[in-house]
Design a protein around this nucleic acid. Structure first.
Length: 528
RNA sequence: GUCCUCGUAGCUCAGCAGGAUAGAGCACUUGAUUCCUAAUCAAGAGGUCACAAGUUCGAAUCUUGUCGGGGACACCA
């Protein structure tokens, strides 16, 4: 819709301009302040320029009215134009709000260490990533989702050790000397019991078995994480194992060497990341020959770029902030365009319950488990809350608010609008087929504005995706729902002379709500 | 200390690449139901957009500085 309007205006104005939405729809549906920027060029008052420009649109069929006000040019769409688009959308619901984009994108997110269940912070990145994935695909991009599994390194050994010691203490009932660092939480004890079943309790008798437990525990945790994700509607195309990448280290290392971006010092191999804006050079291989975490990421990104995507998006926890520079440096050193990699940081989450801090699960040790929150408020509310705030600000919310069944709870409010449309159709006895070809004409401003708002979904989706600002979609849905509730309260539909027209508009609103929610991974309710 | 990020209503937050009178929800006050779900709606009150300077027709938005919150500054992942 917007594209068509843009082109049409461009034809008349014969220059670039900014199209925006007026704050108040009573001005018009779209507006442009182009006269202000022309004022200087033409040495004329913006008010006069706007008036002259507005006259050019008198014969345009898309617009019912184009007027100049205080230097702004306001465009009001015609009934015909809105009707045509609505009729098409209702008849082609699957195609609605889609677009053609042929870019390919590799989207990496979650990538939580397989050493424990997902906590609430992981969930935020997970939901945002999954939604971007859905949005991108809807808009025609080829989006591949990927989870990078950190199955190499100390934390996996630590997991094995933790299970081993928990087994000694709880299964064998031995006195255990706990090291300073280990994974706490009842899930470790659960794993120990599980291990004594899967193997037998002798496994806790020999330290050599720690390695076996590490590997086994990691697989168990990965399975649990997959389940956690599935519970909130997320499935990945691919899981990439860090460990499996190390075979390719020589290949990546050779590239770096060829570009003279590595050097040896104190028996360690360093990368010259400070050449690329990083604070200092970083070690990639330690003096004992073990690779660092960065080495894994170098191989991984080499691997990613070899697969030839147009764009790469990583969603990381905000604590990885300092890590961006060195990864980008490495990508550049490998000979790739680091500008294709975009990193979204998901900030911390604090939870309240009834105004008090949400209590941490004993199962997790010292994190709030995602699954506990899902149990509390359900997957839809969880997804919605994470999608209603910018990724890069701290988020604080109270789970009690999301349990309520009234307008306090935005997801409820939106669903209610959808259900309302459904109920009205039922009450009227009419079906979508009955109304889809009804001509929308002579609409009053309220009806027209409601319809117009519903038709904004396609541009909201494009804007949401291209800006990666997921909250724009949820904000839009809340305001669309508010528009519907308002209209409903002011206008009787069933039995009125405009019944069929209004039903068609309502159907359009419902379609937009449904489509928007679907892209957020939430299914719209038909009945409440 | 360096870098990043945030600072908008009592609270939680929107405000898109600078544009018309500063927005929503919650909480608070008042009102609306013989009629499609009142699970809703309407009205009211609530703001020095942290502060200062700059850029310009025009700044919550851009620049610089100050103050305050949070985060990052590993051969951990």
């Amino acid at each position: 819709m917007k594209r068509k309007i843009n082109n049409s205006i461009k034809n008349e104005l014969e220059r670039e301009f900014i199209l925006e939405k007026p704050k108040d729809l009573s001005f018009g549906h779209y507006a442009t302040p182009v006269a202000f920027s022309l004022a200087k060029e033409l040495r004329k008052s913006p008010i006069l320029i706007a008036e002259e420009l507005a006259k050019k649109f008198e014969k345009n069929e898309i617009f019912e009215d184009v007027n100049a006000l205080k230097g702004y040019i306001n465009f009001k769409l015609s009934d015909d134009f809105l009707d045509e688009y609505t009729t098409w959308a209702i008849a082609n619901q699957e195609e609605y709000a889609k677009a053609k984009n042929d870019e390919s994108i590799l989207l990496e997110f979650v990538s939580a260490n397989p050493t424990g269940p997902l906590h609430i912070g992981h969930a935020r990145g997970a939901v945002i990533g999954d939604t971007l994935c859905r949005l991108g695909r809807h808009l025609g991009y080829r989006v591949d989702s990927e989870y990078y599994v950190n199955d190499a390194g100390n934390q996996i050994a630590l997991l094995g050790l933790s299970i081993f010691l928990a087994g000694q203490e709880n299964v064998l009932k031995l006195e255990v000397d706990w090291p300073q660092e280990y994974y706490r939480g009842e899930y470790i004890v659960d794993l120990a019991f599980r291990a004594s079943e899967d193997f037998n309790e002798d496994i806790f008798k020999n330290k050599k078995n720690i390695e076996i437990l590490s590997d086994w525990g990691k697989d168990m945790m990965l399975e649990l994480i997959r389940e956690n994700l599935k519970d909130i509607g997320i499935e990945f195309d691919k899981f990439v194992s860090e460990k499996s990448l190390y075979d390719k280290w020589d290949e990546s290392f050779t590239k770096l060497q060829k570009n003279d971006k590595t050097y040896k010092l104190d028996d360690k191999i360093w990368i010259r990341s400070s050449d690329f804006g990083d604070e200092k050079d970083r070690v990639v291989v330690r003096d004992d020959g073990r690779a660092t975490y960065l080495a894994g990421d170098i191989i991984y990104h080499d691997n990613k770029y070899q697969r030839g995507f147009d764009r790469y998006i990583n969603i990381w926890g905000a604590d990885h902030h300092g890590y961006i520079a060195r990864v980008k440096a490495a990508i550049n050193f490998l000979g790739y365009d680091e500008g294709k990699l975009e990193i979204i940081l998901a900030q911390m989450v604090s939870l309240l319950k009834g105004g008090e801090p949400f209590k941490m699960s004993k199962r997790s040790g010292n994190f709030i488990l995602m699954s506990d929150v899902v149990d509390e408020i359900g997957k839809d509310a969880l997804r919605f809350i994470f999608l209603s705030k910018k990724a890069d600000t701290h988020l604080e919310f109270d789970v009690d608010m999301l349990k309520k069944q009234d307008s306090t709870n935005p997801i409820f409010y939106i669903n209610y609008a959808h259900a309302r449309v459904n109920q009205i159709f039922k009450k009227s006895g009419k079906t979508l087929e009955d109304v889809q070809d009804v001509k929308l004409e002579n609409l009053n401003d309220n009806a027209k504005n409601l319809l117009f708002t519903a038709l904004l979904l396609p541009e909201v989706i494009e804007d949401t995706f291209s800006s990666r600002q997921v909250q724009r979609l949820s904000d839009f849905l809340v305001s669309l729902a508010a528009n519907l509730h308002k209209f409903y309260n002011e206008n009787r539909v069933v039995g009125s002379e405009n019944e069929e027209k209004y039903l068609k508009i309502f159907a359009m609103v419902a379609l937009s709500v449904r489509t928007g929610l679907k892209l957020m991974g939430i299914e719209a309710k038909n009945k409440m």
